[in-house]
């Protein structure tokens, strides 16, 4: 990891929904080749921040660049330079592996020649050459996740956002997935990942923990454990994110306001 090159810069990022502040003056940088863990309780404001960084939602204020592009004015370039994968939405279940690859390659404007070359490499690496024409729905969850990750980086983005990528798989498959993440980071890609598995937080180079719209802590797992005198990241998380009701009602007010805006 090269600590010198920031690929995401966030200065004073604020996002308000009416009177509710989902992101309250966030400040951080993410470096090239880094695995950056983005943690927080449900409703702490992670998804809001991630949507802004992916160019899907404009911040209320602040200076934010992703891959060198401005999230207010250059959202198209931001989107071209990132990959995104989540547990909830990744591939089209009713299309085959090959069709999914063609679809994503098409969206990112990859030439047919290039796609064919890369597709072969990818299927070979995943050992899925004979499964090329199978529907995604017929694959085991672990394969789907590895495939979804590989397709999310098919257009060779600088940064990959992984939103709870590993739910529901067995412990060996989960670790194989992390091997993919390490490999991509070693190749210089930046990995921005959210997870509820606290042991996975330990695999990150640095971890930020959001509490009620703010970044309550940001450091290497080692330093966080020292700072909060905990044996593991679970302990750190529990100490920081202990809250009763407040962020829950936060989620509520956000939803309510969204609804009011529509009407």
């Amino acid at each position: 990891m090269n600590q010198q090159i920031p690929v995401i810069t966030v200065k004073d990022m604020v996002k308000k929904f009416g009177s509710f502040t989902a992101n309250n003056h966030l400040n951080f940088e993410v470096y090239k080749g880094e695995i950056f863990g983005f943690l927080g309780a449900n409703g702490a404001g992670k998804t809001t921040a991630m949507r802004i960084l992916c160019g899907l939602s404009a911040p209320t204020s602040g200076e934010i660049t992703v891959g060198g592009f401005d999230v207010y004015t250059q959202t198209e370039q931001v989107k071209r330079n990132i990959g995104y994968m989540s547990q909830k939405f990744s591939l089209y279940e009713d299309m085959t592996i090959a069709e999914n690859i063609r679809f994503y390659a098409g969206i990112y404007g990859i030439s047919v020649k290039q796609r064919k070359e890369k597709e072969q490499l990818l299927l070979k690496k995943l050992n899925l050459e004979s499964e090329r024409d199978k529907l995604i729905a017929s694959l085991p969850l672990g394969w789907k996740q590895k495939l979804a990750f590989s397709i999310a980086i098919f257009h060779d983005p600088q940064i990959v956002f992984l939103d709870e990528p590993t739910g529901g798989v067995d412990p060996i498959t989960r670790r194989q997935f992390w091997d993919f993440i390490y490999e991509a980071a070693a190749e210089g890609k930046t990995i921005f990942v959210t997870t509820h598995y606290m042991d996975e937080a330990e695999y990150c180079d640095r971890v930020s923990i959001m509490v009620e719209g703010r970044i309550a802590a940001l450091d290497t797992p080692d330093k966080l454990k020292k700072q909060f005198q905990s044996e593991d990241m679970n302990g750190v998380f529990l100490k920081l994110a202990r809250r009763v009701g407040s962020s829950e009602s936060g989620v509520e007010s956000k939803k309510r306001i969204n609804k009011n805006r529509k009407s």
Partner: peptide, 10 residues
């Protein structure tokens, strides 16, 4: 507790 954060899980 699937998909629930560590605090709520506890």
């Amino acid at each position: 507790t699937t998909g629930v954060d560590a605090v709520s899980r506890k």
